[in-house]
Design a protein around this nucleic acid. Structure first.
Length: 475
RNA sequence: GGCCUCAUCGUCUAACGGUUAGGACACCAGGUUCUCAUCCUGGCAAUCCGGGUUCGAUUCCCGGUGAGGUCACCA
């Protein structure tokens, strides 16, 4: 068996979203599983559509997800260059081969004339095929006309590693363009040459290409080449619609997920399991498990909707599994600005308290602000509380005064706080829902917070007493 | 419209002729002395429709229907 070499071959026309990067994840997994190489090749033969800077952005996205490539535009490799626009010379002999064998010819028509043929065919309710308009005596190709492939229509049956056995009749084979009149090859031609030259073993791509495969097969034959393994992955669909995930509909840049504090491993796990599973009930896979267990033939044949809630759940799960010190390093740049005055030890204790409720890192400020800043008393927290709203401010004050008296005696260790809080519960014969809620609101001014005793232990005596006073004054 | 492909809970999916159609996310309820979260328990919820084949179809075949892809000098 030949060496496994897969490639990701995007055109540099923008950023990568979850749908776009999925074929990269699959290709990377196949390469790593086969102990082969993963190649990045930029398909930049359409200069009009190119977006400046998107090549660097693409590379950054792959690396951010841990999808390291072994060969690529910025790191070179044995088959450099890895930008199609720089590979014009390598296409030449293949063009010549086709010219010599009579399998390529210059297109004498302008784009407008071809368009007229197309419209005529449509008017007659006939499928348009350029080969029905093949010129009798095409002019010699001088590079300024489009160069077309002279196809030999026939039926094809082939195997797709994901879709299974596929077949079409000869009516889909046509004389597609090999070289554009601007001197650049089309994707249809260039990718076949590059995959051959770069010894690619598996072509893993999106389903928009599946209808063109018979044409490619026809070209492979004319070129006397053996096609690589074909694998066609269905699209990732948007959350509600039935349309594929697209930038137009606001699909997020994968780098934005990284910036929001999604873990690369969680993202890869999520993307891989969107349309793939190993047949078991396992949901969480380490990268190594994914590499070991992934297989193209278990990729779903229908499109899968992208559900961001599931991603958030999975990311939260990964965060919960992290060591506190590991998590601490990862969230370094996500603290609220007020946290800059606090030392690492304090922040670590805070982090330990919110770790289990963090879904992604950029939630950190809203979850922890009250640990770093005294928030003004918010009357709504009382007036909208189902128990406390029924009490008058005198009773609330009395309870808070009692709490304050007890807490003044505490050394603020977790044990002592827990103990005193429990005793206070008995002494006041209040329900926890009343007493603890009141103290929690008074000391955090937050709608949600970690456990009361834990939170108070971290905040410390001085701050707690101060906040209690503030609350008392506001009632 | 032609050609190709697909079709299980709201969502991601398991079950390669025989299961009370399983799991996960989400949602709902209860428990974990307060909130949010975690964790635990329970609940809601699906085989697109119609024909076959078969003792028996989610599974195989045919036909509908629905959806997606494609029919560029874009990739």
């Amino acid at each position: 068996m030949t060496d496994v070499r897969t490639r990701f071959a995007p055109s540099p026309t923008g950023y990568l979203h979850v749908g776009g990067i999925r074929t990269a994840v699959f290709a990377w997994l196949v390469a790593r599983q086969g102990r082969g190489q993963f190649v990045l090749r930029l398909e930049d033969t359409d200069k009009k559509r190119e977006v400046v800077g998107s090549d660097a952005h693409l590379m950054k996205s792959l690396r951010a997800l841990g999808l390291d490539y072994d060969e690529g535009p910025d790191i070179g490799g044995p088959y450099a260059p890895y930008r199609q626009s720089e590979r014009l010379a390598t296409y030449k002999p293949w063009v010549q081969k086709l010219l010599d064998s009579g399998r390529a010819y210059a297109d004498p028509y302008t784009a407008e004339e071809v368009q007229a043929f197309r419209e005529q065919a449509q008017k007659n309710k006939q499928p348009f095929l350029y080969r029905n308009h093949r010129p009798q005596n095409p002019p010699a190709w001088n590079g300024s006309q489009a160069l077309r492939f002279k196809s030999e229509p026939k039926a094809y049956k082939w195997h797709d590693a994901i879709m299974g056995d596929l077949s079409v009749g000869p009516e889909t084979i046509d004389d597609f363009i090999l070289m554009k009149s601007d001197g650049y090859p089309t994707y249809n031609f260039a990718h076949i040459i590059d995959d051959e030259e770069m010894k690619i073993s598996h072509i893993i791509r999106g389903q928009e290409f599946i209808a063109s495969v018979p044409n490619y097969l026809n070209l492979y034959e004319a070129l006397e080449l053996t096609p690589p393994v074909m694998a066609t992955a269905p699209h990732v669909l948007g959350p509600d619609g039935k349309k594929k995930l697209s930038k137009r509909d606001g699909a997020k840049d994968v780098l934005d997920y990284i910036r929001d504090g999604y873990l690369p491993e969680a993202l890869v796990n999520f993307i891989a399991s969107l349309g793939w599973n190993d047949g078991s009930e396992q949901e969480i896979f380490t990268i190594d498990e994914l590499i070991a267990k992934f297989s193209l033939d278990r990729v779903q044949r229908s499109g899968a909707h992208f559900d961001e809630r599931r991603l958030a759940w999975m990311n939260g799960y990964y965060i919960r599994q992290l060591d506190l010190s590991d998590l601490f390093e990862k969230v370094r740049n996500y603290w609220p600005t007020e946290a800059q005055d606090y030392d690492d030890e304090y922040k670590k204790r805070v982090l330990g308290l919110v770790q289990e409720r963090l879904k992604y890192f950029s939630e950190l400020p809203e979850l922890t602000l009250f640990f770093f800043k005294d928030l003004p008393p918010d009357p709504k927290l009382i007036s909208e509380h189902k128990q406390l709203k029924k009490m008058n401010s005198e009773d609330l004050k009395a309870l808070l005064e009692q709490a304050k008296a007890v807490l003044e005696e505490s050394d603020f260790s977790l044990e002592d706080l827990t103990d005193r809080l429990n005793k206070l519960l008995e002494a006041t014969s209040q329900k926890p829902a009343v007493l603890f809620s009141l103290i929690r609101i008074a000391t955090t001014q937050a709608a949600a917070s970690p456990g009361l005793a834990e939170t108070m232990a971290v905040l410390g005596k001085t701050r707690i007493l101060k906040r209690l006073d503030q609350m008392l004054n506001s009632l």
